Structures are given as C-alpha cells and as structure tokens.
Amino acid sequence: MIRYFKTDNQRIQEEEKIGDGVWVQMLQPTHQECAEIAEVLNVDIEDIQAALDEEESSRIELQDGYTLILVDIPTVEIRHEKQSYTTIPLGIILTQDVIVTVCTDDTPVLQNFVNNRVKEFSTKKKMRFVYQILFRTATNYQMNLRVIDKKRTEIEERIGKNTEDIDLIDLHELESTLVYFATSLRANGVVLDRLTRYKRLEQYPEDKELLGDVIVENRQAIEMTSIYRDIINGTRELMSSVIDNRLNNVMKYLTSITIVMAIPTVISGIYGMNVNEKWMPFANTPHGFLIICVLTLLICIVTMLVLRKKKML
C-alpha cells in the first residue's frame, strides 16, 4: 500500500501523487509498487525492498542522488498466544525533493505523524522529519522496555506463592526480547553517529539539537535494556533457587516419612521370621501383640519428635 502525505500550515493532508515536499509512505508494498516508486524517483528497487527483509541490519548508504537509511524499530507480535515485542527494519529514502518510508507494519512510530500528533512536523524539512522519526523510535523502545519490566515485576510478585514453570518460560521470552532490543539499539546508534557527519541535505541548527536529543534517548534506551537484562537474570536465578528449595523440602519430608514408616516394617519383619517362639519377646505373653504395636507406635512417635527437632519434619 502506498500513501502520499504533505504538510501545509502544520497540518498534514493526503495527496494523490508524488510532488515536491511529499512524504511517500509504503506499507507492505508489492513488487509492482516498489518498481513504480523506484522508476519515478530513479532509485534502486533493491534499496526500497531492503526494509522488507527482516534480517536486514541498520545502516546508512549514500547513493547517487539519494540516501538510504535503515533502522530497527520496535513492534508488537503474538508469540505463543501472548503479546510480545520484536524489532523490524524501517527504511527511509531521502531524495532532493521527496522522503520515502518503507515498512512491513503500520508502526505507531509513523502513526503519530499521520495522525498529526507531532509538533513542528513538516514533510518539506526532510532531515528534521528523519530525526523526529528516530526520536519517536527511541522513545518507543523506552516505553516498551517499561512494559517489559512491569511484566517482570508481576512474575516476581508471584515468587514464593504460586510460581509455575510457565513463569520461567515468560522470563526467558522477556530476556530474548531484551537481546533483540539491545542489538537493534546499538546498530541504530551507529547510524546516528554517521548522521552527525551527514551534510548532503540542508540542516537547520534546531535539527542538530534534535539529533543530539535522539542520540541521548537512544543511549538511555541502551542503558535501560542492559539494566533490565541484569534484573531479569537475577529474577530468574531467584525463581530457580525457590523452585529448587521447594524440591529439596519435598524430598526431605519424603525421606523423614520413609524413616518413620520403616520402623513398623522392620519390627514386623523380625517377628515374621521362622524361629522358635521361645526366643521371641512377648510371644507367649498375654496381649503380646498389643504390647508390640504400642511399643512400635511409641518408637515411631519418638523418631518423629527427633526429626521434628532437627527440622526434618
């Protein structure tokens, strides 16, 4: 799908075709649509389709007549019937008169511009537009990171109460997401570093200040990712220790019960031997069976008290 937008008096409106100062938004474009835009703008079709490959890494390439900027942006996906986060490429192509964005998802990063929620947004000021996109990307990472940390907190609150194996799996998925985020943010940082030396298109002084803000926000997102990964590692280790401790307690109780139950078994086994009854205590004593049962019970009780005193029962 291809849509054309242009700002007029700080209000965005949709256009019918490409013109000077127009933003071309391409969402999951077909090969035919990519070929059409490539022909009109004299751009390599492979550069347009680069953002459609999920394995593409963030980079900036200066081509003859245009510039390709690829960055990774966060997006929501359904994984194991649950909402998770991942990263996808966003392609930005800058020509002398037009800016083109290519993405496989209608990301909130660009929705803010379409819905006119970004102040001082103009499709004619292309470099500022790029920096605003990158700024929204960095803040989106931070927002998703806070959601991830909130999910981790919810899992941590269940530790010691009704912790289940699924919590360990959820923690692993959160940690995997943070790995994706960390990799993408570092790659985006390299692109931002190259943009500080970019002089092909006109930049205003406030644009450079905005780029500085983007770099700061991206670094903050990287630090948040690192901190949350460390916290998740600690939470996972704590949960594993709690589960192991519960297993040890169960084994301790089972061992204690086995010791107590072994006493009647041993006594009954001794009395079940084929020996002369005159050598068996209480064999000819009135109520001998009852006396043996009582003694066995007393021995079991004493054993239980000893085990309890040693905190094994």
Rank of each mutant, 00 (worst) to 15 (best):
D230N: 14
K252C: 10
R219F: 06
G272K: 12
E223S: 10
G272E: 03
N276P: 12
M273I: 07
S256A: 09
R236C: 00
M224Y: 11
G234V: 09
I231M: 14
E237F: 08
Y271V: 05
V242C: 04
I232Q: 03
S256Y: 10
L254A: 04
I227N: 09
A221V: 05
N274L: 08
V260H: 09
T225N: 14
I227P: 05
T225E: 11
S268G: 15
N218P: 10
S241P: 06
V260A: 01
K252A: 08
I222S: 13
T255Q: 09
Y253D: 11
S226L: 15
A262G: 15
Q220R: 04
D230W: 14
Y271A: 10
I232T: 01
G234W: 07
L247E: 07
N245Q: 08
R246A: 01
M273T: 03
V260N: 03
W279R: 00
N248G: 00
M239S: 07
I267F: 14
V275G: 01
G272I: 01
I215N: 09
M224P: 04
N274H: 09
M251F: 04
W279I: 05
R246V: 00
G272F: 10
V260R: 07
G269P: 05
S240T: 10
M224N: 08
I270L: 15
Q220W: 02
V250S: 08
Y253S: 09
N233D: 11
I215E: 11
